[in-house]
Design a protein around this nucleic acid. Structure first.
Lengths: 242, 242
DNA sequence: CGAATAGTGTCTATAAGACATTATACT
DNA sequence: AGTATAATGTCTTATAGACACTATTCG
């Protein structure tokens, strides 16, 4: 079975990014129009191969984030999602892709200065529902990425990664509502959020608008794990009765 | 930057397994003594390279599970843990390792008929504390695997994967206590477990012992996600005050 | 002072934590 | 009957869900 002259197969390693953000109170994902074969002209997650045999995978993810999305804030949330390695997922040969999940605060308008032909924010709903098709197995990767984000919102302070440096409690609530696709009670949300010490800390200032009472501004506290968690409603779906 | 003649670097892909089980009410991990360089003679997680360029990664994990641990029950829990790809993690060259977490029910005594020199169950505590050293970056992989198991016990029915086909509630409690390293109140545990419909279903029979009242036997229900979750005590560690 | 937006308080139901007793089988 | 192990019940406390009012700013 094991032969002295045997050598393991060599494969290409890609990094793909699920970059989520909030735009107009809806969850969006960054997609690029492919400029090369295969799937030329089709939509895909941003990503690419390792640059060289010495590049660390996480470094490659950061590099792609910078090259393809023009996003390179060191405070950007970036975590490994999973590795996708079906033998025929790429017609160019054996490619395994390490997927990362990135969360970005709502950005100005366009995603300029990118490497890929065209990069754009697409509502996640459009892609999950199948109205917008993705190249490779990227649909499955996106599904996993969105599910990860939904889950991590419950047990971690990930929601603040969707917000700018400072944000109001109402904005934070919009994050939860958009990612989970539910409506939350404003008063219970205030109580809950402020009951978790270290989740958000006051920024001291207010945000004034043309009308109405100014909203207090907060910034993310150092807390990463949320105890007790913020349980997503409607999860009580029992699988079987008895 | 992108040149027409450029080709991505080729790397070797390994699969490593964190196989956890319960032995004598303590959490154990399966380790093998390496029979080849590098790290010859040292302890490591079971694993190996992809067999050929057409082998699926998950299939490779199952194959290693069978070859190195003699475990191949199709009902065995096996899930991807993460991918470890630091450039210098393996002296043989660029190797990225896809780690899987496997949960096995308490097995008879030895892990016989294995491919590796010697395979044995080691208490997780011994390894996490550093008393037992592992080759490569396997210590970190084990840490992640144990943490994953601890977390999934809270929100999923993973605990039943540590048990045999049928089990008592007391045995299930031992799983939680061993993996979390805490003591749980027996009465609250009974109430909680039986309050989640579909988590465990009665197997009809009892388990008789020499002394005392027989315990009712259960088997795993179809449920995978636990709602509400079983929160691990002592998690309320606030990061900062104000 | 009215409109618009921000923030808080109360009541109720459900779940968690602490704790003592009853139940069944065997010798 | 005694012992050993299995299982259940109650009280208290905390947290979640439903719901209505007060507060601040601006024109």
């Amino acid at each position: 079975m094991s032969d002295d002259s045997w050598v393991p197969p060599l494969v290409m390693v890609a990094v793909d990014l699920v970059i989520l953000t909030l735009r107009a109170a809806k969850l969006h994902v960054l997609l690029v129009e492919r400029g090369v074969e295969p799937y030329l002209g089709e939509l895909a997650l941003p990503g690419g191969f390792l640059n060289n045999a010495e590049e660390d995978i996480l470094d490659a993810a950061h590099r792609e984030l910078s090259e393809e999305a023009n996003l390179d804030s060191p405070r950007l949330h970036l975590e490994q999602l999973g590795t996708y390695g079906a033998p025929n997922r790429d017609p160019r040969g054996r490619v395994i892709s390490v997927a990362y999940l990135a969360i970005a605060p709502g950005l100005p308008e366009p995603v300029a200065g990118t490497d890929a032909a065209g990069a754009r924010w697409e509502p996640v709903e459009e892609v999950l529902s199948g109205c917008v098709k993705l190249a490779f197995d990227h649909h499955g990767i996106l599904v996993d990425g969105v599910e990860r984000a939904r889950t991590k919102l419950e047990y971690s302070a990930l929601a603040t990664a969707f917000c700018g440096d400072t944000f109001t409690i109402a904005e934070l609530q919009q994050v939860y509502e958009a990612v989970w696709g539910v409506e939350l009670d404003l008063r219970n949300f205030y109580r809950k959020i402020q009951g978790v010490p270290g989740f958000i800390v006051s920024a001291g200032t207010d945000r004034r608008t043309t009308k109405g009472r100014p909203a207090r501004l907060f910034r993310a506290g150092g807390l990463t794990a949320l105890y007790p968690p913020l349980v997503r409603p409607g999860s009580s779906t029992a699988d079987e009765g008895e």
